[in-house]
């Protein structure tokens, strides 16, 4: 009886459908991972044949040279973003999670205007922000191409991201923790610092590292705010252009001059290495700080 029913066309169709679906999901996963591997290997394959270690300690020149200035510049920009956007973003996230809670009087969710503004800003195309930075800061306020203009614009870009990830991380901190802190007589500020922030730390740090990686990989907003220079960064905030790793990739890849041409590939390789170190590093940070938090975070 059972075998008879299994042979009906209806059952066969369902079985084929199930197998096809299974195959399709694996195929989709391959289509996500294979091109990515191709991108990474493609960049490595272009950079390695002409790789010279001296790019790490010579500055660029108009005919080639190295990438020391770009590496240092990118690191300075990323640290600057971490300080500026990190502070503002984390504080904004604390406000959204801990202070803009549901009002006791009206029962309404507070902070919705801020949430919407954060949301809208995070959807702003980076090139539009770069353009704003160029016309308002570089030209309008006479800052010139500078670290300052780049930091303001990149921070505008990643603050919403940091605020959202901080809010998410703090919301995952169990309410029990806060109640327990209150019951023990801690002030709210003390509880925030010692209990809530510490428990949410893995999530916050992951968000920060991702934000810094995003900022370090940006090209469009930097082209018209940071400018470019063959010199090492001077830490002057204004009137001094600063180099960064994405510029050689975008500008030199079509140059006939081999020195510049290879510099584009080298910069692409260094960029990938830098960002992968950051992102993989964020995993280790999470693993190390996990002990403060209950369950899985990040």
């Amino acid at each position: 009886m059972a075998t008879a029913t299994l042979r009906t066309p209806y059952v066969r169709r369902r079985r084929v459908g199930a197998i096809a679906f299974r195959a399709a999901t694996y195929l989709a996963l391959l289509l996500v991972l294979l091109p990515a591997a191709w991108v990474l290997l493609g960049v490595v394959a272009r950079a390695v044949p002409h790789w010279k270690w001296s790019v790490l300690w010579t500055t660029s020149s108009n005919s080639g040279g190295g990438l020391l200035n770009a590496i240092l510049g990118s690191i300075v920009i990323m640290i600057g973003v971490l300080i500026v956007a990190g502070t503002i973003g984390v504080l904004a996230g604390i406000h959204l999670s801990e202070m803009a809670t549901i009002s006791k009087r009206s029962g309404k969710q507070r902070g919705n205007v801020m949430r919407t503004a954060t949301e809208v800003l995070s959807g702003f195309p980076s090139i539009v922000l770069g353009y704003v930075g160029y016309v308002a800061l570089v030209v309008g306020l006479h800052w010139g191409f500078s670290l300052g203009a780049a930091l303001v614009i990149l921070s505008m870009m990643v603050i919403p991201y940091i605020a959202k990830s901080t809010e998410g991380a703090l919301r995952q901190v169990p309410t029990n923790y806060r109640e327990g802190a209150e019951a023990l007589g801690m002030s709210r500020a003390y509880a925030l610092r010692k209990i809530v922030l510490r428990s949410g730390l893995p999530g916050i740090v992951t968000g920060l590292i991702f934000a810094v990686a995003i900022a370090g990989g940006e090209t469009a907003p930097l082209l018209y705010t940071a400018g470019w220079t063959n010199q090492n960064p001077s830490l002057k905030l204004l009137h001094q252009p600063i180099a960064y790793l994405t510029y050689p990739v975008w500008t030199y890849y079509q140059q006939a001059n081999n020195g510049l041409h290879y510099l584009a590939y080298d910069a692409a390789l260094l960029l990938i290495v830098l960002i992968l170190i950051l992102l993989v590093g964020s995993r280790f940070v999470v693993a190390r700080t996990q002990k403060y938090s209950e369950g899985k975070v990040g």
Binding site: L33, V39, V43, G217, E218, T246, V249, A264, A268, L279
Partner: peptide, 19 residues
């Protein structure tokens, strides 16, 4: 790995796309 992909800079995708 999928999350890492989101962090690959667009200029890298551009370089790979054109070359």
């Amino acid at each position: 790995a999928v999350e890492l992909l989101a962090g690959i800079p667009s200029v890298i995708f551009g370089l790979w796309g054109i070359l």
